[in-house]
Design a protein around this nucleic acid. Structure first.
Lengths: 219, 219
DNA sequence: GTCTATAGAAAGATAGAC
DNA sequence: GTCTATCTTTCTATAGAC
């Protein structure tokens, strides 16, 4: 940044943008190549920069990844938490939460793929105790997000709109469906918001079908 | 192997077992740590051996991974292909194929996770042209397996038992559901075959619900 | 057929110039 | 705040003993 700009007080903004740029580039790289296979040089190169710039803003590759993970989860919480707090019958609330969740997966795909990678990594590769602590926090964050849906699933079962016996298995199946766009979705050129939402609605409908289907009987 | 045994003609068998042991150990390591984060030393250590043993049987890490991938897909094809060739209405055939597929995911989980990792890797990390060729073969193998289900899905739609508009999206959603046990299933100690099948049946029921649900109308 | 030892490459991280 | 240069570790792959 030039001294002129800094003297105008834009220091914080510039700093934030620099960090945000790195986070977005890192998310893309982690999505494309996975965690271990992504080098800091890869991230830097995708920004037209070198390592020095990354390490000035983030102390380590692990911490950079953790911040990408956190950013992804922050976005999900901000979008879904308000809906999960609303009163009323389970089904319409579930549909709104699911729809917003799926749109999050589509619109912020690189960050959500990083979250997925983080969950898949489990604790493997986290060698030092500090790394483990950070990692456990991230996984806990993700679990708390998942719990936003559990209450509505249980309420829906009580109300007779959902049918399932094992909440954990059902939760896994539901999230696999709702998360799946992070693996196969990519926006068409010139895709409108309505088209994106139509696709998201199909995903939600599929998951809803899984939750309401009277399994064994219909065999 | 001892000269005595070799003189008895068990050379092939011993070689096969050695390779099979390495493949199984490699599959576990790839499942636990992913491809890039798994070192050949990790695989060797999990066998109580050193690298030399691995490199005697496999020319490179990439080739070792490719063989794990192939072994996983071989098992899937052997289990599902005969069912997909059967005549008759789509729904019962789909249910049998789906059930067998899900059981494959559960029983051969390490290999199936390796297949997943391979699909996720896409072409990233495959640097040389030979590697790309091998990799494209693997992905093509996987695509051909997916196609076993496509015909039955289309037939089911014609017969009115499945409802969907986009075959590709539906295929993705279905496989995400049917594959999901590779991420969350682990057998309980002393789990019976009946219990395993009951769990698989729940997964199949969920997917079937997604396929038959009359999406938009039921909102 | 498996081991030890090692060469060579890649990547995380740091130091210091600008 | 970013870059270049470098240290250090880790890992693939190979060579050669047994």
């Amino acid at each position: 940044m030039t001294p002129e700009l800094r003297s105008l007080g834009v220091r914080e903004i510039a700093l934030d943008n620099s960090r945000a740029d790195i986070l977005a580039a890192a998310a893309r790289c982690f999505m494309d190549r996975g965690y271990a296979q992504t080098s800091i040089d890869d991230v830097a190169r995708s920004l037209g920069a070198t390592k020095g710039r990354i390490y000035h803003h983030f102390p380590s590759k692990g911490e950079l990844f953790a911040e990408v993970f956190r950013a992804g989860m922050d976005m999900n919480f901000a979008a879904v938490k308000p809906l999960s707090d609303l009163p009323g019958p389970a089904l319409p609330r579930w549909r709104r939460m699911a729809m917003v969740h799926v749109l999050q997966m589509m619109v912020t795909k690189p960050f959500q793929r990083a979250v997925w990678i983080g969950v898949e990594m489990h604790l493997a590769g986290a060698t030092t105790p500090e790394q483990r602590t950070v990692f456990n926090e991230l996984l806990d964050y993700r679990t708390r997000y998942g719990n936003l849906f559990r209450a509505t699933l249980l309420q829906g079962r009580d109300e007779g709109v959902f049918r399932f016996d094992d909440l954990s298995v059902t939760n896994q199946l539901m999230f696999m469906s709702l998360n799946s766009p992070i693996f196969w979705y990519s926006p068409r050129t010139g895709e409108t918001r309505a088209q994106t939402e139509a696709l998201a609605a199909r995903v939600v409908a599929y998951a809803q079908g899984g939750l309401v289907f009277e399994g064994e009987r219909a065999a």
